[in-house]
């Protein structure tokens, strides 16, 4: 049985070279943190803490990953999530009647979420239209919409924080089903759906093709413009789902919430094996990378490292990951060239 397991691992390892190191890294990080904190790291209370932040971070990282696979980037995910959250919050506060019954509550919450999704789609359409149809570089487009969306949120809220959501809505952030928090279930379902789209739907395959070579993809009969439009809509919707979760967890929304998360999402994507030049990326890698980074952050917190120091550490880790990916790539490239030369000789 062990031999069977080793064989399976070997084959997984060969097919997933870009993320094969991650399980080991995860193991090492968990071990180090457990030892360093004298076991505090593994206590149930801490594990709950550790898991609590993951859903929104994971959803936002997925939102970053989708455009990155097409060799783009979406810098507007945080500001579009904030705009979505603010609009949902205003809707919930404005519409929710005092002492409403169960049925009305559900309708209103579903309505708020639906409204949030519509807002996300509209925000994503603007990004996607500019990148796909007007051919504005993704960095510029999303930098522009990042300013614009944040500006709109500021204008709507006049710079204030909108807080105190209805109790029922907060359940998304703290209720559990079968022992799992609802927001965690949401993330797991979304991650699974994204993995299926990436690997088992024509659209998902197109994403990778566009990321590697948009010209050849267009010559193969794929409507590249539409693929890009969808990419940014999906990215925005994922950010919108993150907004639903964040609104419930923080019980508030404002224009500048979570601006440091942009770095985290890029870091998670890069560590998770998504190629910033497009064409490659795996949801499984992203999830593992997220757990690793959360474990590091959480462990450092336990050790008394202050939160703004964490930002600097994450930045340094991103540089480290870029360097690691670069040297790994160099190694593969050398191997590939050697193989190619050997083949030419035959």
């Amino acid at each position: 049985m062990f031999a069977e397991f080793v064989k399976r691992y070997q084959s997984w390892h060969d097919r997933n070279q870009d993320i094969a190191a991650l399980p080991w890294l995860l193991f090492v990080v968990l071990a180090i943190m457990t030892v360093a904190t004298g076991g505090r790291f593994l206590r149930a209370h801490n594990i709950t803490n550790l898991l609590a932040q993951m859903p929104e971070l994971g959803l936002l990282s997925l939102a970053m990953m989708v455009p990155m696979v097409t060799a783009g980037i979406n810098l507007s995910i945080i500001s579009s999530a904030n705009l979505t959250a603010v609009i949902m919050a205003l809707f919930l506060k404005g519409v929710f009647p005092q002492g409403a019954g169960g049925g009305t509550t559900i309708i209103i919450i579903v309505g708020a979420i639906a409204l949030g999704m519509i807002v996300s789609i509209v925000l994503g359409l603007l990004n996607g239209f500019l990148v796909g149809y007007v051919e504005v570089p993704a960095v510029l487009t999303t930098l522009g919409t990042m300013i614009l969306y944040e500006g709109i949120t500021l204008a709507i809220t006049r710079g204030f924080v909108i807080s105190s959501m209805p109790e029922a809505y907060l359940l998304i952030g703290n209720a559990r089903i079968l022992g799992l928090p609802i927001h965690m279930i949401i993330f797991l379902v979304v991650a699974l759906v994204m993995a299926i789209i990436f690997h088992r739907r024509p659209y998902g395959r197109h994403l990778f093709f566009v990321g590697s070579n948009p010209t050849a993809t267009a010559y193969s009969g794929v409507n590249v413009r539409r693929v890009l439009l969808k990419t940014y809509v999906i990215s925005s919707v994922l950010a919108g789902i993150a907004a639903v979760v964040m609104l419930a967890r923080f019980n508030s929304a404002n224009a500048r919430q979570g601006s440091s998360l942009l770095l985290s999402t890029v870091l998670i994507c890069m560590l998770g094996g998504t190629d910033p030049f497009g064409g490659f990326g795996k949801v499984l890698g992203l999830v593992m990378a997220m757990v690793i980074l959360q474990a590091v952050t959480n462990g450092l917190n336990l050790l008394g490292v202050r939160s703004f120091a964490t930002v600097a550490i994450w930045g340094a880790m991103l540089v480290g990951v870029i360097a690691y990916r670069y040297y790994q790539h160099q190694k593969w490239e050398r191997k590939r060239k050697q193989l190619q030369r050997a083949r030419m000789q035959q």
């Binding site: 980037i73 890029v266 930002v311 600097a312 991103l318 540089v319 870029i322």
Partner: peptide, 15 residues
């Protein structure tokens, strides 16, 4: 990509 290096450095410096 220089944008990603820039995001990293931005956070290191501010942190």
């Amino acid at each position: 990509p220089s944008i990603i290096v820039a995001i990293a450095n931005l956070n290191i410096y501010y942190g």
